[in-house]
Amino acid sequence: MVPRRTVLGGLMATGLAPTATWADAGQPTYVTAALRPDGVYTLCGLDGAGQITFEVPLPARGHAAAVHPTRPEAIAFARRPGTFALVIDCSTGHQIARVTAPEGRHFYGHGAFSADGSLLYTTENDFDAARGIVGIWDARQGYRRVGEFASGGIGPHDILRLPGTETLVVANGGIETHPDSGRAKLNLPTMRPDLSYLTPDGTVLEQVELDADHRLASIRHLDVSPDGTVAFAMQWQGDPNEAPAPLGLHQRGSSPALLSADNADHLELQGYAGSVAFSNDSQLVAITSPRGGVVQVFRASDGAILRSITAVDACGLSSHSDRGFCYTSGEGHVAFWEPGGRTVALSAHPRAFDNHLIRVS
């Protein structure tokens, strides 16, 4: 019998070696950062039933992840003001590369790939200059840094690519921070958040600012529907009892629409939306609030609230089935909601799931 290593070596030499897929990583539906009871931070894969398919240790607390469009690779980003992002082969658990923010920078915990997966874009803080940066990394060259451009504002947090295009949308939260001051917010009297649409070389195609009453509504997290509608979640930096709508929808060339529940349900959010997601059919949009312990679901067409779900410390959120949503909590719960009011507890783990639930497929 010819040894398997010899066979694989021959296949590699001919270019016919099998290519790893997400099936080799247990076919996860989502990836998320977590904290285990032994104090180890990890990146986990979760399947559609909420079961862990893989788990890889991280050197410190993670925030969100970016998923490669063709390979079973996930980029696990450190929580702000972290400086690492690990490129993980989810089929083997091996670290492929470590992406380190340049001197004088830190990551904001989010990134996005170009359509073909050749480039990774990362949101960064040039903290001494108090300006937002988008870093460019070449995934074909071991994630070597190959460029950067201005994000269009201060405090760029989330970044996504509009489907079918190379246009990037950046949530510039507007908040100036500096590692020497920890997580202190240094410019609240003058902050101006915005939503910026950028080309891959940094040309500003469009910028959206809300009115003066929303100046303290930091635009933080994003989701994008197939038709390019952007959902953005905000975190109010003033009195929570005076917080305006925490959720907005925007299409390029139009004015943003703000969505809010009636007063009692609105106040439950405590001015803080943690994650945002469209349903798979784009008819519904939802936000989480770990501070308020709720998940709120809205109809995208007219902004009507359909459900406010009690969910202690829920923050991670993504689509599930055609019209449903999956959410995770800091208490280790994975749950699913679908129209008609049914909430299903999929699983519970001895983990503290972190802020975001990133869909793989």
Rank of each mutant, 00 (worst) to 15 (best):
R307H: 14
V99A: 00
S282V: 01
V276P: 05
L11N: 06
L357P: 04
H250F: 14
P72E: 07
T229A: 11
D180K: 09
C315Y: 03
D128W: 07
F127T: 03
A139M: 10
A273I: 08
G10T: 13
Y41S: 11
L247G: 02
T32Y: 12
V2P: 14
V134M: 02
A85R: 07
A25V: 02
F113C: 06
H333V: 07
L284R: 11
P246L: 15
A78I: 02
A184D: 15
I75A: 00
G202Q: 02
I358C: 08
P256V: 10
Y30V: 06
H333G: 04
G274Y: 00
I175G: 02
E55N: 06
A129H: 14
L269E: 06
A13V: 11
P244E: 05
A231L: 05
H63Q: 09
L35N: 07
W22L: 07
F278E: 03
G142R: 03
H178R: 08
L120G: 03
G155C: 09
R161L: 10
D313Y: 00
P256R: 12
L195H: 09
Y197K: 03
T29K: 11
A304N: 12
L8H: 13
L216G: 01
W137F: 15
G153Y: 13
L168A: 11
A277H: 06
H63K: 04
S260A: 15
I358R: 11
E268M: 15
L357S: 12
G48E: 15
E55K: 11
G174C: 08
L267C: 07
E166V: 04
T122A: 12
V344Y: 08
A273G: 09
V56S: 01
R359H: 11
S301H: 13
S289T: 00
Y143R: 06
L269W: 10
H349E: 11
P28M: 06
A277G: 10
G330M: 05
P102T: 12
T32W: 14
F298L: 15
P72H: 04
T177R: 14
V312Q: 15
D38W: 13
Y41C: 10
L16G: 10
F54C: 03
L317A: 00
I219Q: 01
